Computed example of a mutant assay.
Amino acid sequence: MNSPAPVSNIPRRPRLSQRLGRITLLAFLLWIVIDLVVPTKHDIRQFDARTVATIETAMWRSYYERKPVLLFWQLASGLRQQFHTRFWRSFRLGYQATKSAFIFKQGKTRADYQRALPELISYYESIHSLSTNSFDVHKVAALELDWWIIHRQRERYSYANLANALAATAAAQYNLPVAPFQTYARLRANAMRMRDDSVLKPGGTTEADWTVIEQALDQAWGALHEAVQPNRQ
């Protein structure tokens, strides 16, 4: 007969890697929950204008080249730069903004465009909850949609109309008079004109065009940053 195999008296070692994995996962989930749930407020007047201009240029390219996933990622990055949004919350806001932009893009009439308004309201409600600066959410969302429509319907409106709408939107968002935002609005509307005109050229918008557009946006956001500083009030 075969003798029974000896029983090992060596204790089993705890699976350290599994414990570390569980701890890491719990810490990761806790980070997400805190990021999404715990409120943090910042002064939305403080941002790096050049970085915002660079991100907006990239966002324009993604929008016009129909790249919603890339636009979503860029929007989230822009939100973290301009509004100091936390990492995971920036993706929730980015989703709201991307969804409203592509609902609008698919529209043909003003009634179609109005379908983007609920998402815009949700987006600005989220911005308002993060800001130490109060503003009328519904008013800002409606004005945002107005300038989108003015820009879309260029056969009916001028770039001067667009600049006025941009100035009104910024004034409402920062709860200030319109006058300080005229320079910002003119420069940003001019950047939009550059992009629109470049499409009509053979070959469309070139890298050189995008460089010039980014320079114009850099000046525009610099003007807005200057306009909202407390020492200018």
Rank of each mutant, 00 (worst) to 15 (best):
T51Y: 11
V52F: 02
A53G: 01
T54I: 07
A58C: 14
R61I: 07
S62K: 10
Y63V: 02
Y63G: 05
E65C: 08
E65F: 10
E65L: 09
K67G: 04
K67Q: 13
P68R: 03
P68W: 02
L71P: 05
L71V: 03
F72V: 05
F72L: 06
Q74N: 00
L75R: 14
A76P: 02
A76G: 06
A76T: 00
A76L: 03
A76C: 00
S77M: 04
G78T: 02
G78W: 12
L79D: 01
R80F: 09
R80C: 04
Q81S: 11
Q81E: 15
F83V: 14
F83H: 07
H84S: 03
T85A: 10
R86H: 09
R86Y: 02
F87V: 14
W88N: 11
W88E: 06
W88G: 09
R89V: 10
R89H: 07
L93R: 12
L93K: 04
G94P: 00
Q96D: 12
Q96L: 15
I103F: 05
I103M: 07
I103G: 04
F104C: 06
Q106Y: 11
G107D: 13
T109Y: 01
T109V: 11
R110A: 15
R110W: 15
A111N: 12
A111M: 02
D112K: 05
Y113K: 08
R115A: 05
L117N: 07
L117C: 06
E119G: 07
E119K: 07
L120G: 02
L120M: 07
I121W: 04
I121N: 04
S122C: 08
S122K: 07
S122G: 06
Y123Q: 11
Y124A: 00
E125I: 01
I127A: 11
H128W: 15
L130A: 11
L130R: 06
L130I: 00
S131T: 14
S131H: 09
T132I: 10
T132R: 09
N133M: 13
N133W: 15
N133L: 13
N133C: 10
S134A: 08
